[in-house]
Design a protein around this nucleic acid. Structure first.
Lengths: 227, 227
DNA sequence: GATGTTTTCGACTTCTGGTCGAAAACCCAG
DNA sequence: CTGGGTTTTCGACCAGAAGTCGAAAACATC
C-alpha cells in the first residue's frame, strides 16, 4: 500500500486561473495529464516530500503558499496497485514564468484536458479551497507579486473567483481589513495614458485568517487594524 | 509504512464541548489517552475505514457529520514504526448518550488529559475546524438534536465557539440565512416557569456553505431563503 | 488645448449584525 | 386569583460592512 504526494499548483496567467500539469508518457493513462508529485520517501515527511517532488516540475522558490488539501484513498483510484495520495495546494504569484520541463504545461483550471486518475477532482478541490479562502483570509498575497496596482489585484481576484469583482469594493475591504497598504509609489500609465495607478503591497505575506464573520463576536471586540 | 485513520468525535455534553477518547492499556504511551481509530484495511477506503473503526467505540448511527480533517505524516510521530494517520472530524448531536466501552470516556475539549502521539494537536485541529465552519456553514445541525429551542441552540454554539453568544442575534442570523425554521410547537416551560420556548429545526441536515462573505458577490444576487 | 483613458475617491444606499429593553407567557407562593 | 419571579420573544435603534454610482484626478495622444 504505497503513498504519494501531489500538488495542485495554481497561478493567474494572462487573466486566467491555470494549473500546472504534466503529460504521462507511459500507461496507465498514457497521454493523460497529471498533477506533479510522486512517491513518499520512507523516512520523509509529507510537506518536505511535496517540495522535493515539485522541484522536478517547477522552481519551488516561486511558491508563495503551500497547504495540505486532502487525502484520497479509494482502493481503485489507481488501476494497478493501491496508492493513497495526499494532495497539496500550491500558489504562484502572477507575473513570473517559472521554467518547466518539456512534458509540463499550464492549463486553464476550468477547461482541463484528459486527466489521469482522480486528478481532475483534486484540481476542483483546490479551486474551491482557494475561492473560499480568498474571502476570509489574506491568501490573495500568494496570487499577487510583491507590488501591484489595484486593477491588477482585481484581475487576480476575478480570475480566481470566477466572477467580476469591483475594484472599489476590493480596495475598501482589503484596506479596512489591513491586508494591503499603499507603497507610496505609482505605476507608469498604460499605452493610452490614464491616471497612474498607485502601487500596493500586502502587509503580511503569510496566511492570516480574518476574524470577522462570527455569529457573534466575543464581547471584547478586537480593534480593526486600519492603516 | 502503515496507514491509520483516526477520528476527533465532538459532542456538546452538559454545556461543554467534549471529545471521545480511549485510554491505552499498552505501550507506547501506556495509560495515555488516544483518539478512536486503527489501521486502514488493505482494500478499504478511508471513509469506510473510519466508520468501521468507530463502531468499536461508539454507535456510529449517532454521527450526524463526518469529514476529513488532515493527514499527518511526520516520520517520528510514532515512536516505533512509520505510520501515517488521516484524521476525521465527527459530530454527535447534544442530548444522546451513546454506549461506549469500558476504556472510553468523554473529555472536555479544552482540558485534555495526557494524550498519546500527536492526538492533542488533532483535537485542536478539529475544534478549529468546527469553530470556523459554524460561521459560514449550517454545521450547527450536527450539534443539535432534530428539534430544539433557541436557548439550547445558543448553548451549543457557546460551547463550541468558546464565548458567549446572543440568542437574539443567533436567531436572526440563522433565520435570515434560512438555516432554521420554527416547527410550530413549543417546549414545556422549565422548573420555575417562564415563557414556553418555540421549537425549531434545521431546514437541511447536511452540510451547506453559506455563500455570503465574498469580497464581491456575483452580480446575480441569490435571494436569501427567508421562511 | 481638446479629447480619450484609466484610476481614485466620495456620496449614497443596502444589508448584516450588535445592543437593549419592553412585552409575552409561563410558574409558584400566599 | 393576584403579585412576583423567570424565561423567551420581539421590536427599535445603532454601528459597521459592503454594493453602486458618478464625478474628479492624472495621465496620454492628436
Amino acid at each position: 500500500m504505497g503513498h504519494e504526494v501531489l500538488a495542485v499548483v495554481l497561478q493567474v496567467r494572462d487573466h486566467v486561473l491555470s494549473v500546472l500539469l504534466w503529460q504521462r508518457a507511459r500507461p496507465p493513462y498514457e497521454g493523460g495529464w497529471a498533477l506533479p508529485g510522486g512517491a513518499l520517501g520512507v523516512a520523509e515527511g509529507l510537506g518536505p516530500s511535496i517540495r522535493r517532488q515539485l522541484k522536478q516540475k517547477v522552481d519551488v522558490r516561486e511558491l508563495t503558499h503551500l497547504e495540505q488539501l486532502e487525502t484520497r484513498g479509494a482502493p481503485d483510484r489507481h488501476p494497478l496497485t493501491r496508492v493513497l495520495a495526499t494532495a497539496y495546494l500550491g500558489l504562484i504569484p502572477a507575473g513570473v514564468d517559472p521554467l518547466t520541463p518539456e512534458d509540463t504545461r499550464w492549463h486553464p483550471a476550468d477547461r482541463l484536458p484528459d486527466m489521469a486518475f482522480d486528478h481532475a477532482e483534486l484540481v476542483d478541490s483546490g479551486r474551491r479551497r482557494l475561492r473560499s479562502k480568498l474571502s476570509y483570509t489574506n491568501i490573495g498575497f500568494a496570487l499577487a507579486p510583491p507590488v501591484f496596482t489595484l486593477s491588477e489585484l482585481t484581475d487576480y481576484y476575478r480570475a480566481a473567483l470566477g466572477y467580476e469583482v469591483s475594484a472599489t469594493n476590493l480596495q475598501r475591504v482589503l484596506l479596512r481589513r489591513g491586508q494591503i497598504q499603499p507603497t507610496g509609489a505609482s505605476a507608469p500609465p498604460g499605452r493610452y495614458g490614464g491616471r497612474p495607478a498607485a502601487l500596493y503591497r500586502f502587509r503580511v505575506r503569510e496566511l492570516e485568517v480574518t476574524d470577522a464573520f462570527a455569529v457573534l463576536r466575543p464581547p471584547g471586540r478586537i480593534a480593526p487594524q486600519v492603516g
